[in-house]
Every structure is written in structure tokens, then in C-alpha cells.
């Protein structure tokens, strides 16, 4: 535990906390978190994890910054238009906290590359915007027993749960992607920008709790909020023995790229 004077000051509010302390801060600084999707959820998650001093932050996203992103994807700014999202985010992270080692993957995550990418990280944050990728992340994380935070947002609503090995996975709750026509298109649905901030920040908090080893994670329960009425609820569920990926007789034994839903947010 050899913090520099600058680190002692920077992380003083963590070090003071009884449940974090120098040991917890050291755990954060030794931590490696991968953020899949550097958009609405990934932006606040990346900011808070960087500020907290997470040792290594991986960013994967194949997109470039578009004007329509800036209403909610707060790590990107107007001068970043047309820049790769991972580069834009890396620049902000390095400005916020030079202690952080940022690794970027400027590509889409697929069944071919996901295991290779996630295997070196302690915790994965799903900040993606489409069901096929959410299921791909779930299945890959279950296959190699990698903890991850699921997050989803639409309009004024959000939902999130955390998977850790042995506990319920995303497929225990939702068997598979909804039918194509059940998914509203982006222009029909929309999203209040700050909703992304609420949810991405919860995901970052789960990652930090996991790294430090404190509190109760959102395992075996889904946190659902409705920001219009500002109601937060948690729905409990158990690991499903018939789950196609983590059940007793799994039917999904290899990773697949399911068909992209109608809404392919850019």
C-alpha cells in the first residue's frame, strides 16, 4: 500500500470510508474493468471508474461519435464528432485520471472475439443498446464464469442486474431476445438522456463494490426504475434450473450472434 502523496489526496474520500479504506482503494487500483459500449451507459460508468482509480479500463465500441449521441453520451463532446468513441473516451479518462491504464478495442464485439477480450478482466459492464449483444455478453460471461453488470434503458425506464458465478444469469430471467417487431425503433422510443446517467452510474457502483468486496451486489434480483414517477423496485428471482445457458441441462453450448433487432442504435 504505497500511495503517492497525490494519490492520498486524490482518493482521500475513499480512504476515509470505513468500508473502503486504503485496502479497498488498493483493490480498486488493481482492478480491471471492461466496458462494452461507450455510449449512454458506458460514458458515466467510464467516468466514475476512472475517477475512482480503477487500474485498467477496457473500452470496446466500433462506432464514431455522432451528433445524436451527445444528448446523453456525456464522455463525448462536440469537438469529438466523427472521432472513434473509444478514442474520445480514452482521451477524457486520461485527462481525468492519468493513473488509469486505458485499453481500447475499436471494433464490434462478436461471438468470435468476445471470450478473448473479456477473459483478462475482473468485471464486465454491458453498456450495449441491443438484445443480441446483451445475450452474447451474458452467455460468454456464464461460459467463462465472469461477473458482469447488465443494464438496459428505454424512454424513462431502466433495469439492471449483476451476474456472478453460481447466481442467476440474464437468460434465467429472459429466455432470449424479444421478437423483432416487439422492439420499438429508436425514433419511436427515445430516451431521456439523464436516465443513462442513473443506470450507468449504478453499474459503475456495482463494479466498484465487486472490486472492493463490499455490500450486496444486484445478484438474483433485477433493479427496475421508472423515472417519471421516480420509483425504484427490485424484483427477486432465482437461478433457473431450466435456463438454456446456466441451467442443469444447458442447450446453448456455443456462442452465437443472434439476428440484430430492428433498432440498431448508432
Amino acid at each position: 500500500m504505497d500511495f503517492s502523496e497525490e494519490q492520498i489526496e486524490r482518493y482521500s474520500r475513499h480512504i476515509i470510508l470505513a468500508d473502503v479504506g486504503p485496502e479497498g482503494q488498493e483493490a480498486i487500483m488493481n482492478g480491471k474493468v471492461l466496458i462494452i459500449g461507450v455510449g449512454g451507459l458506458g460514458s458515466p460508468a467510464a467516468f466514475y471508474l476512472a475517477a475512482a482509480g480503477v487500474g485498467t479500463i477496457g473500452l470496446i465500441d466500433g462506432d464514431i461519435v455522432d451528433l445524436t449521441n451527445l444528448q446523453r453520451q456525456i464522455i463525448h463532446t462536440t469537438p469529438d464528432l466523427n472521432k472513434a468513441k473509444v478514442i474520445s473516451a480514452k482521451e477524457k479518462i486520461e485527462k481525468l485520471n492519468p493513473d488509469v491504464n486505458t485499453i481500447v478495442y475499436q471494433k464490434l464485439i462478436t461471438s468470435e472475439n468476445i471470450i478473448e477480450i473479456i477473459k483478462d478482466y475482473d468485471f464486465v459492464i454491458d453498456g450495449t443498446d441491443n438484445f443480441p449483444t446483451k445475450f452474447l455478453i451474458n452467455d460468454a460471461c456464464v461460459f467463462i464464469q465472469k461477473p458482469f453488470s447488465h443494464g438496459g434503458i428505454l424512454r424513462f425506464d431502466g433495469q439492471t442486474m449483476t451476474y456472478t458465478p453460481g447466481n442467476a444469469c440474464y437468460r434465467c430471467v429472459f429466455n432470449g431476445p424479444p421478437p423483432k417487431d416487439a422492439v420499438p425503433s429508436c425514433s419511436q422510443a427515445g430516451i431521456l438522456g439523464s436516465i443513462a446517467g442513473i443506470l450507468g452510474t449504478i453499474q459503475a457502483t456495482e463494479a466498484l463494490k465487486y472490486l472492493i468486496g463490499i455490500g450486496d451486489l444486484l445478484t438474483n434480483r433485477m433493479l427496475i426504475f421508472d423515472a417519471l414517477n421516480m420509483n425504484f423496485n427490485t424484483v427477486k428471482f432465482k437461478r433457473n434450473m431450466d435456463c438454456p445457458v446456466c441451467g442443469d441441462k444447458p442447450t446453448i453450448k456455443e456462442l452465437i450472434d443472434e439476428e440484430q433487432a430492428a433498432c440498431d442504435l448508432n
Binding site: M1, F3, I8, E9, S12, R13, I15, I16, G21, P22, E23
Partner: peptide, 13 residues
Amino acid sequence: CPMTFVKTKLELT
């Protein structure tokens, strides 16, 4: 404050 307690806590650990 808060470095007074931060330094104390670091030493105590």
C-alpha cells in the same frame, strides 16, 4: 480536513 484523518487512517493501517 479531511487529510488529517486520511493520514491518521493510513498510518493506523
